[in-house]
Computed example of a mutant assay.
Amino acid sequence: MSSTAEMEATGREENPNAQGAAAAAAAEPSTSGHRRTYTKPVWSLLEEAAQMKTEGNAFYREKNIRSAIGRYHRALLVLRGLDSDVMTSVKGFGAETPALTPEQEALLRNTQVDCYNNLAACLLQRQSVDYARVQEYSLRVLKWRPGDVKALYRAGVATLEMGDAQTAKQYLIQASREQPNDANVRKHLQRAEEKLNRELQKEKAMYRGMFSTGPKNSSGEGIDQTNRAGEGV
């Protein structure tokens, strides 16, 4: 298996004969009475989205991260109108979601997963990384494909950078079970463990300070300063 730092760059859904098109045009609905339907067949929309993903992969390999991100977003915009999970929340508005065959549903979800995985990879390549967005995209992948090692790795990295070492450790442990020899997973798992250890040491030091013996009063009793925080002026 390839390194978790790499992008999800392949998939059977790639169709070299599909024509790339703007997302708005690809998903443009037409009005018929009070119901709206798509002007293009479902397969055509799925192929256009897959082609955009393929173009995004090519831009990524060329280190053209901005263009790659644009292609993945356009692909997801096309697929959005076909996704019953998305359209259910806005039922009654916009276009009617077409019924998909099991094969079309699988192609839709695989393309979405690859695009979100690849978007997370792209964002990690930027000079200023939006870790919240990396985490969001990675968790979307895990929702549809639990155990995806690249999404687990990226979710772990993003969560660690956002300050939650405990949750990051859990993601990275899962990733390490799938790829125990991956250097990137091991490195960030070690970072998470070191951060947790530092936090534990700080917590212990804090409690030692709170419960250590304080100065004595005239009767010989210890004065617990922590219990007198609300007293005085």
Rank of each mutant, 00 (worst) to 15 (best):
Y131V: 01
R191I: 01
S176H: 10
G222R: 06
T101S: 15
R126C: 13
A132I: 03
E178C: 12
R133D: 05
Q127I: 07
A95E: 00
A49P: 01
G163T: 13
E47R: 06
A24S: 11
T159F: 01
M206W: 06
L123H: 02
R74G: 04
L79C: 12
A49E: 01
H188E: 09
T97K: 07
E161A: 15
A24C: 06
S32W: 02
R208F: 08
R177Y: 05
Y153W: 09
Q174L: 07
S212P: 00
R208L: 09
R61W: 09
Y153I: 02
P146D: 06
A75W: 02
L77A: 14
G209N: 08
S44E: 12
L76E: 03
G209E: 09
R126L: 14
S212R: 13
M1R: 11
V90L: 11
N15Y: 05
S176I: 04
T97F: 03
E231Q: 14
W144H: 07
R191C: 01
V78P: 03
Q190C: 06
P16S: 13
E221C: 08
P215F: 14
A5C: 14
S67C: 07
Q127Y: 05
E199W: 05
S44H: 07
L172F: 01
N110D: 12
K216M: 10
L189H: 01
C122S: 13
S3F: 06
G20N: 12
T10A: 14
Q104C: 10
R145L: 11
R228D: 08
E62H: 11
L119T: 00
S67M: 10
S219W: 05
P98L: 04
A68L: 02
V90M: 12
A183H: 09
P146M: 08
A192F: 01
K91C: 02
G56H: 04
S89C: 06
R228H: 11
L124N: 04
F211D: 08
N64V: 06
L76K: 03
A165F: 00
A120T: 09
G163E: 04
A50N: 08
A22E: 13
T111E: 04
A27V: 08
A68T: 01
E13D: 15
V134Y: 00
G214S: 15
R177H: 07
N118E: 12
R109I: 11
T101P: 11
H34C: 05
D148G: 03
M210I: 14
A9D: 11
K143V: 07
S44I: 05
A95T: 03
R228S: 08
Y72N: 03
A151Y: 00
A26M: 10
